[in-house]
Every structure is written in C-alpha cells, then in structure tokens.
Computed example of a mutant assay.
Amino acid sequence: MSGPSSDGFIQMGGTIRHKRKCRDITFLVIFIAFSIGMVVNSSFGFNQGNPLRLTHGLDYKGNVCGDKFAYSGLGELELRYWQNPNQVYQSGLKDSQFKLANARSICLLDCPIPSDDSLVWVCDYPEGDISLSMTDWINRKYDYFEFLTPEMRNSSLQLQGPCYPVIFPSVNVYWSCQFIARASNMSLKHWQQMGGVNIYEDIVIDKSIHKSINSRSAVLKRYMADIGKAWPVLVVCGGILPLFLSVVWLVMIRHFVAAMPWITVVLFNVLIISVTMFYYLKAGWMGNDVISPIIGEHDPYIDVSGRELTHLRVATVVMTFIMSVAILSSIAIVRRILRATSVLKASIIYDTIMLNFD
C-alpha cells in the first residue's frame, strides 16, 4: 500500500482512490435553494390553486366559472358566455388587436338560445340598483331588462350593458358557449325595431370562439384536467388490478399449465381487439357513438370539431397497427408456444416430484 501523494490521492494495489468531499459548494447551494423553492411552490399551488382554471373560463370580474368560493352563487354556474356579439366579432378579425379574453363574459347555468316570440336578454349579475338575488336572476333566465331605467335601456341598446340581446344560438362546448353563426331572424328584427346598434353577422363570430376553445394550450389544459379527475382509475387499473391479476395468473399456471399459454395469448388478442374497436367507436368510424366536444343535449344538426377527435383518430390508427402486429406475432409463434407448453409441463412435473420426495 502506498501513502498519500502530494495532491491527496491514495494508491492501493494499483488503484488510485481519493478522499471524497464536497467539491462544488456553489452548485450545492443552488440545489438546496431549488429544492426549497419547489416545496414552497407546491405548497402555494395546493393551497391557492384552482383546478377549474384548466377547463372553465373566467367572467368579466376574473371569477372562475363554477368556483363556489368565488362570487356568490357561481358554484352552479359553470358555463362561460360572451354577452357582446360585436366584441366576439371584433376579436376574430385578422388585424384586430382586441382579444377574445378581453370580451365581456359571464357565468351561466346553460347556454341561452334566441326565442321565436320575443327578444331574449342576458343581463349582468344583479347588483347596484338591481334588487334581485342571484337565485331570482337565474330563475328569470338572466333577464331583468324590464327593470332597467330609460338610461340603462338605451345603454343596453348600444351594447354597453347591463343587458345584452341573444341574437345567436349557442351550445356548450367544453364549458364555454360556442356561438353558431346563424342569427335568429325574429330576434334580429325585434332588436332593430327597438333601435339597437348594428350587430355583425359573420362566420367570424363562430370561428373566434372555436379558435380559442380549440387552441393547443386549451386542449393541453383539458388533458391535464382529465388526468387529475382520472387518478383513481389510474391507481386501480394501473396498480391494484394488475397486481391481483398477476397473482391469479400464477395460480392458474400452477394448475392449468398446458392451457395457460394459449389462454394468455387468446385473452391478450381479444383484449387488444376490443380496445381497438372501442377506439373505432369513439372516433366515429364505427357506429354512432362518436366523441363530441359538445356537452349535453343539442341539435343533432350542429357539428363542432375538436383537436381531441383528431388525436383520437390518430391513436386509432396506431392501435390498428399494434393490433395487426400482435395478431400476426401470435400466429408466428404458435410452434414456440407448443414447445414452451412442453417445457412448462416438464418443469411442473419435476417440481411436484421434488416436493413429494422432500
């Protein structure tokens, strides 16, 4: 054994070893600060975070729709509705600096639709001179136009609130009311007779909201929200159930050694075929159970596309390829399965003999 050299290294049996010590104090300090920051950030997220922000929109006051801890009465009002159609139109123009996020919106229980008999109004939350409770406001379908003063009515006819006309039908698309760019002729006629300002009728109104709902960031938020909601399923199907089935498989292979390789292969192929067929159903390529971004009952003639459906169809193609490879591989290894069955039989017989011998 050699002694330590001048630089602190110790040579033992031809192997050079050195005295270990922390050599990067700066990085250690940075790492500790990073760890503390992660703990603080996680604590802040758990205490102050709101998962509804991933899927539900904000009203003009900055409240999250459906948040029971926000503005009084918003707990059951989950849908975001843009009140001013001209602001929605303006946000969809190519050269416009106005963003849809800045358009006036409120939270509603359901998406309003025009009436064939009269002009429907959606008014702001009741406050100030409007002596209505939130419950009464909801029961009145958000309409208190008849209680407005002449000045407030004139302001509403200028699309400056507090009440706004329902000219376009809308449907619930991922908890936001998607406008359908088909203005109600009767509602528009009533609006014009009352002296209301010009309301733009254009497909831009439809596209502006659809672009916001269907953006990459919005889709990613919905995927993250789905994972948050599905964690019990992931725990059961990804952890507990496989563990239980593995024990069952070991028990069955102990008693049904000749049949288990075939049972395993058949069940695997049946499962992968079933999953692939389920993808085909939800992708709309088989049956009438296609996944839709529209939530709840709606006019069957209304069709709204979404990125999720495109992603699902891509996944369906991938699953079709995987299914084909699995089936062909199962056919190709039939001879090997026969050999494996013989080996398993011999192994079980040998283990049984040894146990009896002991």
Score class of each variant (00 low, 15 high):
Asp7Ile: 03
Asp7Pro: 01
Met12Trp: 04
Gly13Cys: 08
Gly14Pro: 10
Thr15Gly: 07
Thr15Trp: 13
Cys22Thr: 15
Arg23Gln: 10
Asp24Thr: 13
Asp24His: 14
Val29Ala: 03
Ser35Trp: 07
Val39Ala: 15
Asn41Lys: 07
Asn47Ile: 12
Leu54Asp: 03
Gly62Pro: 11
Gly66Asn: 01
Phe69His: 14
Gly73Arg: 03
Leu77Pro: 01
Glu78Trp: 02
Gln83Gly: 07
Gln83Asp: 01
Asn84Gln: 09
Gln87Phe: 05
Tyr89Leu: 11
Gly92Asn: 09
Asp95Ile: 07
Gln97Arg: 05
Gln97Tyr: 04
Phe98Tyr: 15
Ala103Trp: 00
Leu108Gly: 01
Leu109Asn: 13
Leu119Ser: 13
Asp124Glu: 13
Glu127Asn: 12
Ser131Asn: 12
Ser133Val: 03
Asp136Tyr: 01
Trp137Phe: 14
Leu148Phe: 06
Pro150Cys: 03
Met152Ile: 03
Pro162Asp: 04
Val171Lys: 00
Asn172Gln: 10
Cys177Pro: 01
Gln178Lys: 08
Arg182Thr: 12
Asn185Ser: 15
Ser187Arg: 01
Ser187Ile: 02
Leu188Gln: 07
Leu188Asn: 15
Trp191Leu: 02
Met194Thr: 05
Asn198Arg: 14
Ile199His: 03
Ile205Glu: 02
Asp206Ser: 04
Lys207Glu: 12
Lys211Met: 04
Lys211Pro: 00
Lys211Gly: 09
Ser212Gln: 09
Leu220Ile: 14
Lys221Glu: 08
Asp226Gly: 12
Trp231Ala: 08
Pro232Ser: 11
Pro242Cys: 11
Leu267Gln: 09
Asn269Trp: 01
Val275Ala: 13
Gly296Thr: 06
Glu297Thr: 09
Asp299Val: 03
Tyr301Cys: 02
Val304Lys: 04
Thr316Tyr: 06
Thr316Trp: 10
Phe321Tyr: 05
Ser324Ala: 15
Ile331Phe: 15
Ala340Arg: 11
Ser342Met: 07
Lys345Val: 13
